[in-house]
Design a protein around this nucleic acid. Sequence first.
DNA 1: CTGAAAGCGCTAACAG
DNA 2: CTGTTAGCGCTTTCAG
Lengths: 346, 346
Amino acid sequence: MSSLTLKDVAKVAGVSYATVSRALSGSPEIGEKTRQRILKLCDEMGYTPNSVARSMVMKHTNIIGLILASIDNPFMSELTVHLEIYARELGYNLMVCNSSYNQKLERDVFRLLLSRKVDGIIILPISHSSDESLQSLTSQVPTVFVSENMQDLPENYISIDNTRGMKIATDYLYSLGHRKIVYLGARKNSVTHALRVEGYTSTCKKHGIEPIIIESNYPRSSHEAGYLLAREYFSKSHDETAILCASDSLAIGVMHAAYEKGIRIPEDLSLMGFDNISFASLPPINLTTINQPKQELATSAMDLLIQHINGTESGYSSKLVSPSLVIRGSCLARNKEINANGGPHA
Amino acid sequence: MSSLTLKDVAKVAGVSYATVSRALSGSPEIGEKTRQRILKLCDEMGYTPNSVARSMVMKHTNIIGLILASIDNPFMSELTVHLEIYARELGYNLMVCNSSYNQKLERDVFRLLLSRKVDGIIILPISHSSDESLQSLTSQVPTVFVSENMQDLPENYISIDNTRGMKIATDYLYSLGHRKIVYLGARKNSVTHALRVEGYTSTCKKHGIEPIIIESNYPRSSHEAGYLLAREYFSKSHDETAILCASDSLAIGVMHAAYEKGIRIPEDLSLMGFDNISFASLPPINLTTINQPKQELATSAMDLLIQHINGTESGYSSKLVSPSLVIRGSCLARNKEINANGGPHA
DNA sequence: CTGAAAGCGCTAACAG
DNA sequence: CTGTTAGCGCTTTCAG
């Protein structure tokens, strides 16, 4: 179990261990013949470089920390695969920590990562106020926030253009002939939500229709929250023809409540989500939504982080990534024309 | 950015740095007053211990590697959250790597983790043959395989009791009055699948009904595969009243194909999955299935791994974890009695 | 081109 | 109880 060291192979190679080091690191100051001989020997002996010793002297670990609420959230796990694959391409490994939607834990794991001497941290913060809670920590290591818009805060971040996303969504519904559109699931104290709401209301105004907003007091935009919200909404009579949800999860819950009420989607009611999480495309769900480009979010975040690690970038940077419409089957044109796709389950 | 070291705080404390080390590590051989004074000082100065230096001398990193095909697979990501949380409780951090369903990459990241000097590795192998492909690597570090039954192989593993799971499923369908049950999605060259099929066929025999197996040649048990398989199946006429799928994903695809064919679930056809992945519980899916206890799988794997790391355990160990039935709405009793739940979307 | 040696930050004997 | 010291495995001047 205790593996070979440079010294071991140096001994059998009959050279000093500095030479072996040079051979491995591709240093120019070494003869080609010796290098080949040593490389071959390392291979034969099954030598594995010890990257912790290397980190010790190099003063960087090539590991980057990832903090997220819960990796089983489909949005987060999709982001994670892109993050991990891209990081590895760039020579980094990922140390992943769940913050479990808990601000204190978020802070604790951040500290932990600090003592692990990670070169940088990517964090999908619990909320906008994570910045405050993480005070004095984010300045100790390059860190970039992902998916939460940290505008006006001294932080690096990558986020989708939430406002534009909801504009696209609202425009789409409007173009389908909908004139009464409810926005469901706005959450107070979230700038992401505020931005999304703004996209919705401004577009309503542009078209001269009235925005109708159902706020949510639930802590997360889960499908349970969507169900509860929609059930209450459906319990009174309404003449809206479309529901625009603040997230896909919420929309799933709305589907459930609608089904119970005998309201058919999309025939009786059009429904849209936001995020385009993996299961939005599942046939029984087949939800029309706004895509967040996960891979672009991931690579942008990583690129930005690396720039800060390398000192290429200073100050605070941010980037907004573009949303796009993904039409599936949960919306129908209002003017009796049939829209391209069938409906959930089509 | 370059942080303080033991020496720095030792200097201002006016003691040797070994003393500071002792204070931090809770060593008994130090006066309580000095300890308190030093601890306070460390805090004030904002000293963060360097765990890579620590690893260097301790010869263990307290990091454990996790290799899985793709962390956005719901089953894997659920497992991962439990793994991470439990690991952290035990003082370990997780370094996660996607093998991207690629045997060569799986081997590459294993090596990478080896040079990272992880204390142990947990792997959700691409397939049973990963063992062969990982030859000579798994012996270099404690490793436990999860979710794939490695019977007869010199490896540690934790798996669900696949055979028993399918027995339970088949029994359930039988108890509902089904006498013609198809098993869909058996895959060759997979011991997991072989075990599941065995549970199905033996239970069929027990009840004197005939097993009908639809094999799959698709590389993964995706919902796309399920859709294609079911579409072909539905294209011919059949009198089976229930479909038992080798996995939940497959079942989702079957739902889709059924919907297209105008076959109602569960009214016309009962459908079961296996795994109980998170979205099986989503209202529009609402799939009756067999649960794999992810948390138990995770903690058992971690416990076993730690035992091997600590040298408490030697040789090869394994554990089979118990499946259980989770009744939702995709199955109906055959004898006109209505089963408790409604159906998908109930 | 190659060897010798210092030192990364920390722990663990070993002295005192 | 506290200080001194020798490494952990590796990279990197600095000599030769």
